[in-house]
Nucleic acid binder design. Structure first.
Lengths: 156, 156
DNA sequence: AATGACAATGCAGTATACTGACGAATAACG
DNA sequence: CGTTATTCGTCAGTATACTGCATTGTCATT
């Protein structure tokens, strides 16, 4: 016979949202651990990844590419600018826009850090067998794409 | 040939952490939408669920049951107390502990809100076929259990 | 009984995520 | 050309999540 504690765990554990929240916690913790030498967060690195491929991007485009809220992108860029990883300047073509660019140092860090970031991803999926990892990624991708419109920060 | 934007999307989309973060965003958005009438967040409802099953629980036990950081639990309880959903009192057995209990109103809301919460969970998984939903939950459960120790707020 | 280890909570500080409102610049339209 | 609408960025406010430190209470050992 199940104790009340067992009943509770079953109740929370049966909610996809609860499992998603915990996976998010776990992944962030692993990322920060693997990337401790750089003192950068997953979201900061996501923004840096975007800028490594698309330099001189305005904040809303960065938000769309990385699926981050635009006010949050502004915060993240301010912190990256403070650490001389990014610079921002008003666009001469459209003076409403602030275009962000990686500094040379920022571009170097983005490259150097990639291996540590990848270790975090690999560790995260390590408990699954190879075919399960593929299936898990496929299912997450299907859910993200089908539900894309329901977050405040949809991709693209 | 892929454009730079396509390359980027592939780069971020191939990172499990990025997909997890987006799923988390999406689920929270759906939860808040379905439960808008109650103005309660997923984490607040998780704490209420714990207290519905285990009344008079101290904050660290709540944190362990719901896998929430203990400082965060204190914040959440303070907000729930302000709204008269929860009361807190120092334990007479151990005066270090503050025991939280749902008020009658809080218990009523927990029951009433369950259907809306469940709608959010169902909508979230709706894009998957029935067997895919089962598999997805199974994989999430395996990852959460195997990686439990790596978050600051492990369960139990 | 005093001491020292440990446990529960609190507090300050930071990062992500979002809402709503606002000002400034641009674009669209008549 | 001028009015209107839209877009970009910002600001203030709130919630979650975590780190590190301090405080208080309990307990074990002496």
């Amino acid at each position: 016979m199940a104790s009340t504690i067992d009943e509770l765990k079953s109740k929370l554990g049966d909610r996809p949202g609860h499992l998603i929240r915990r996976l998010h916690q776990i992944h962030v913790a692993m990322f920060l651990e693997e990337c401790a030498a750089y003192s950068l967060t997953p979201v900061q690195y996501a923004v840096m990844t975007v800028l490594a491929i698309q330099p001189k991007l305005d904040q809303i485009s960065i938000a769309n590419e990385a699926a981050i809220d635009r006010t949050n992108v502004a915060d993240v860029l301010a912190r990256l600018e403070e650490r001389c990883i990014v610079t921002r300047q008003v666009s001469s073509a459209d003076r409403r826009m602030k275009l962000a660019v990686l500094t040379n140092e920022g571009a170097r860090i983005t490259r150097d850090m990639e291996a540590a970031m990848q270790r975090a991803q690999d560790r995260f999926l390590a408990p699954l067998a190879a075919d399960q990892r593929v299936e898990f990624m496929r299912l997450m991708d299907a859910l993200v794409n089908a539900n894309n419109a329901f977050s405040r920060a949809p991709a693209r």
